[in-house]
Amino acid sequence: MIEIGELLNQIETYCVDCGIEETTFGLRAVNDGKFVSRLRNGKTIHLKTLTKVLTFLAAKPAREAA
């Protein structure tokens, strides 16, 4: 299973590569703008949410217009 630190690193890399904020990532991936900050602050993640995030990261969707 993936570690939270590793997941955060993947999210950070994705955000830099796509030129988006982490809040935007959270909104697009799981409809939660505070998702990344909650993870950093020690909140847990449900398997269903983890699956959504990993699927979003794997799909590498094109940059959407703001």
Results as ranks from 00 to 15, higher is better:
30 V>A: 01
66 A>H: 15
23 T>Q: 12
45 I>Y: 04
62 A>L: 10
66 A>Y: 15
15 C>Q: 03
39 L>E: 03
56 F>D: 00
22 E>T: 10
48 K>L: 09
20 I>K: 01
19 G>C: 02
50 L>R: 00
6 E>G: 06
31 N>W: 04
43 K>M: 10
44 T>C: 12
1 M>Q: 08
62 A>M: 13
14 Y>W: 03
66 A>N: 14
10 Q>N: 10
58 A>G: 02
32 D>R: 12
37 S>D: 08
54 L>T: 11
55 T>D: 14
3 E>F: 15
41 N>M: 09
15 C>K: 06
47 L>T: 13
45 I>R: 00
57 L>K: 03
46 H>G: 14
10 Q>H: 10
39 L>P: 02
19 G>W: 01
52 K>M: 15
35 F>I: 03
13 T>A: 09
60 K>L: 04
65 A>Q: 14
52 K>S: 14
10 Q>V: 05
49 T>I: 13
42 G>Y: 07
50 L>Q: 04
37 S>A: 04
10 Q>E: 13
3 E>C: 12
26 G>P: 06
13 T>Q: 12
1 M>N: 09
12 E>H: 11
14 Y>G: 05
61 P>N: 04
42 G>M: 06
44 T>I: 11
2 I>Y: 06
11 I>F: 02
2 I>G: 03
12 E>S: 12
1 M>K: 12
2 I>Q: 10
12 E>T: 11
23 T>R: 14
66 A>V: 15
66 A>D: 14
15 C>L: 03
25 F>G: 10
29 A>N: 00
34 K>Y: 08
5 G>F: 03
10 Q>G: 08
53 V>A: 05
57 L>S: 03
2 I>H: 03
14 Y>F: 13
3 E>A: 13
22 E>F: 09
43 K>H: 06
13 T>P: 07
30 V>H: 01
1 M>P: 13
66 A>F: 15
60 K>Y: 03
12 E>D: 15
62 A>S: 13
12 E>I: 09
61 P>Q: 04
16 V>T: 13
34 K>W: 05
35 F>C: 01
7 L>S: 00
4 I>P: 07
19 G>E: 07
44 T>F: 11
2 I>F: 02
18 C>R: 13
36 V>Q: 00
40 R>I: 01
40 R>E: 02
56 F>H: 05
44 T>V: 11
42 G>R: 11
38 R>L: 05
56 F>N: 01
63 R>E: 13
33 G>Y: 05
38 R>V: 04
8 L>W: 04
63 R>T: 14
66 A>M: 14
39 L>Q: 04
64 E>V: 12
57 L>Q: 09
